[in-house]
Write a protein that binds this DNA or RNA. Structure first.
Length: 318
RNA sequence: GCCCAGAUAGCUCAGUUGGUAGAGCAGUAGACUGAAAAUCUACGUGUCCGUGGUUCGAUUCCGCGUCUGGGCA
């Protein structure tokens, strides 16, 4: 039996959800989300989760399952996704992995190893304090002494990364170090994926992002953020750092007016889309589709499905 | 109609004692191994409103025009 999977990636608001559903229907697959916000319970409007109607059209996994008060990370995602994907393979169902979180997708298609030390809160806090007192360069110099390779890759101002690297050294007797992207560029042999990279002309994409933010507000985004805060979530929770959430939270806290919150949400979504495109541009084997080049959704789907069919019915020889 | 102020990057504006210009924001490009919707790095762009004059040289000074604010009638 071939263990083949389909991966749909692309920037926010490009239309991944609807295309993933069509593709899943077309090849009898089930959708596995690779989205770091849609995974949280209660983050419905701001993360643009699929609607009830969309959910009923294809089975979705890894959406709406994590308590937003807990700290979640790629490591957990990788494990959960692997379980889901394996169970789909067992049932001879094609996984259609869809989402915009590049690191999550990488954790599936590349051999990324998260078995070493996890997050170490006390060390992290200590180092953060040190950076505060002595400056970013100080921590970077510390890292340089103990792991020159990692230090070379990390800019001193990228505090989170520098701290993470030091955290690894402190907890593992210098054994493990922060590994580079290149080093882990080995494909995960269990996956055998075909990657579909959906994009649009920049101007059109930005128009879609801007008007989607307006729609999210009309659908009650402010209310959703208020409810989340009432339920005990604070701005410090990782889940609340999502675009649309942190900006509206600032408005609710009285830092600025709603118009400014909307402006920030739109701008940050645009910048995020830009970063996603940069990330997915690194996938050498991705099949790219610029949706702006086609007359209709049906037309694109014809082409996409053709590519997928060729892939699925190739006899696997891995 | 008269008086005053302004017109410079996509936007808001600074500046050039006359030698064709720079900040913020927007934008563009990139990095990424346990926060990733996070975090970090790098980079432009210009008929300096038009027109005539003074000048070796005008975006800068002067005249006229146009437009935009504000005031007075």
């Amino acid at each position: 039996m071939d263990r083949k999977s389909i991966i749909i990636v692309g920037p926010t608001a490009v239309g991944k959800t609807e295309y993933a559903i069509e593709i899943a229907k077309h090849c009898g697959g089930e959708i596995v989300s690779a989205d770091s916000m849609q995974i949280y319970k209660g983050f419905d409007i701001g993360s643009a989760k699929p609607t009830e109607e969309e959910l009923s059209q294809a089975k979705h996994h890894l959406i709406d399952i994590i308590d937003p008060k807990t700290d979640f990370s790629v490591a957990e995602y990788q494990k959960m996704a692997a379980d889901v994907i394996n169970s789909l393979f067992d049932r001879d169902v094609t996984p259609v992995i869809a989402g915009g979180t590049g690191l999550y997708v990488n954790s599936l298609i590349y051999d990324m190893d998260f078995s070493h030390t996890g997050k170490q809160d006390h060390i992290r806090k200590k180092l953060e304090r040190e950076a505060d007192l002595l400056g970013n360069d100080h921590l970077h110099k510390m890292l340089e002494k103990q792991d020159p390779e990692a230090a070379k890759r990390l800019h001193p101002n990228n505090l989170k990364r520098v701290i993470r690297a030091l955290e690894l050294i402190e907890t593992s007797d210098g054994e493990s170090s922060l590994r580079s992207f290149e080093e882990s560029f080995k494909p995960n042999k269990l996956m055998n994926p075909i990657i579909i990279f959906l994009n649009r002309d920049r101007e059109e994409l930005y128009d879609r992002i801007n008007s989607r933010v307006d729609i999210l507000l009309e659908s009650g985004l402010v209310r959703e953020v208020e409810d989340l805060k009432d339920s005990g979530l604070s701005n410090e929770n990782i889940s609340m750092k999502g675009i649309g959430y942190k900006e509206i939270a600032g408005f609710i806290d009285g830092e600025y007016d709603l118009d400014h919150a909307i402006y920030l949400t739109k701008r940050n979504s645009r910048r995020y889309a830009k970063r996603q495109i940069t990330w997915f541009n690194r996938y050498p084997d991705a099949h790219r589709f610029n949706l702006s080049d086609y007359g209709s959704k049906e037309e694109v789907l014809t082409y996409i499905c053709k590519v997928i069919e060729t892939f699925l019915y190739q006899t696997g020889n891995q």
